[in-house]
C-alpha cells in the first residue's frame, strides 16, 4: 500500500507544454476526421476579400477619411479579421462554451489538475481561422509596406507589444462574451455573436463615431485596442499613439473581467441532468 500522491504546479512552462500537447492532439483528430474544413477556410478568406473590395471601392472615390488613408484603414480592417482568425484557430474553444456548460461537459475539465481556461481554449480548433489569418496577414503586410513607417528598434518593440495586446484583447472579449453561457442558456450563441459583431465598429477609425460610441469602444468592450490603437501607434498618429501604452492594460482589464465572469459562472454551474 504505497502511494505517492502527485503534486501539480502550473508553471507557465507547463501550461505552454500542455497547450501544445492538447492543441496537437486536436489538430491530428481534425485532420483525420473532418475532410472538408477547406470549405470553411475558403469561405472565411472569401468573406474577407469581399470586405476588402468594399473598402477599395469606397476609397477609389475619396482618398482620405478623416485623415486616414486607404492602407491605414485596410490595416484596421485586417486586424479585426486577423485577430478573429487567431481566436478561431488557437482559441476556438471559447465558442464551444455553450455546449460545455449545457451538456455538462465542463465536469471532466473540473476534475483535471489544469486551469479551466486552458482546457476551454483547447476544446476545439476553428480551421476557418487559417483563411482569416492568411488574408488578414496579407493585408496587414501590404499596408505596412504601403504606409511610410519610421522603423526603429523602439517602434518595432512597441509594435510587437501593441499587436500582442490587440490579440489578447480580442481573445479576452471572446472569452468574456461566451461566459454568458452560464446565464443565458436558451438562445444559442446569439449573445457572444452580438458582442463579436461589435468588432464591426473597429474595422474603421473610431474617430468617425459619436463620443459615446468611442468611449464604449475604448472602455466598455475595448475593440479599439484591437485595431484602432495599433494602427495609431504603427502609423505614428500623434493624437492617438499615446494610447498604445494602455494596450497591455486593456488586455489585462479584459482578461480580468473574463476570468471573473468564469469564476462566478462556475459557481452557478449546474452540470447536467438537473
Amino acid at each position: 500500500m504505497t502511494r505517492t500522491t502527485l503534486s501539480v504546479r502550473n508553471t507557465p512552462r507547463r501550461i505552454l507544454f500542455l497547450y501544445r500537447r492538447l492543441f496537437g492532439q486536436q489538430l491530428k483528430a481534425i485532420l483525420e476526421y473532418s475532410s472538408d474544413f477547406y470549405v470553411m477556410i475558403g469561405a472565411a478568406a472569401f468573406t474577407q476579400i469581399v470586405g476588402f473590395l468594399f473598402l477599395w471601392v469606397v476609397f477609389s472615390r475619396i482618398p482620405v477619411i478623416q485623415g486616414w488613408g486607404f492602407w491605414e484603414v485596410a490595416f484596421m480592417y485586417a486586424m479585426i479579421y486577423f485577430s478573429e482568425g487567431v481566436g478561431s484557430l488557437f482559441f476556438e474553444g471559447t465558442w464551444r462554451m455553450l455546449r460545455l456548460v449545457n451538456m455538462g461537459e465542463l465536469d471532466r475539465y473540473l476534475v483535471r489538475p489544469m486551469p479551466i481556461v486552458l482546457q476551454i481554449f483547447c476544446t476545439g480548433i476553428g480551421m476557418n481561422g487559417i483563411g482569416n489569418i492568411a488574408i488578414g496577414g496579407a493585408i496587414i503586410g501590404m499596408s505596412l509596406y504601403h504606409v511610410d513607417i519610421d522603423w526603429s528598434i523602439t517602434s518595432v518593440l512597441s509594435a510587437l507589444v501593441v499587436l500582442a495586446s490587440a490579440l489578447a484583447v480580442r481573445i479576452g472579449i471572446n472569452l468574456a462574451a461566451n461566459c454568458s453561457a452560464f446565464w443565458i442558456r436558451t438562445s444559442g450563441n446569439a449573445f457572444p455573436i452580438m458582442v463579436h459583431n461589435m468588432g464591426e465598429f473597429a474595422k474603421y477609425p473610431i474617430t468617425i463615431y459619436s463620443l459615446g460610441l468611442q468611449l464604449f469602444l475604448a472602455l466598455g468592450v475595448p475593440f479599439a485596442f484591437v485595431s484602432f490603437v495599433p494602427a495609431a501607434v504603427l502609423f505614428g498618429k500623434e493624437d492617438w499613439a499615446a494610447y498604445g501604452w494602455l494596450s497591455p492594460l486593456a488586455a489585462a482589464y479584459v482578461f480580468g473581467i473574463a476570468l471573473l465572469l468564469l469564476r462566478i459562472g462556475l459557481r452557478r454551474y449546474e452540470s447536467s441532468g438537473n
Partner: peptide
C-alpha cells in the same frame, strides 16, 4: 481544485 484533482479519479457514467 488542483490539489483535489490529483487525489481523485472519477468516472461519470454515460459521459
Amino acid at each position: 481544485r488542483m490539489e483535489n484533482a490529483v487525489r481523485i479519479g472519477a468516472v461519470f457514467g454515460q459521459r
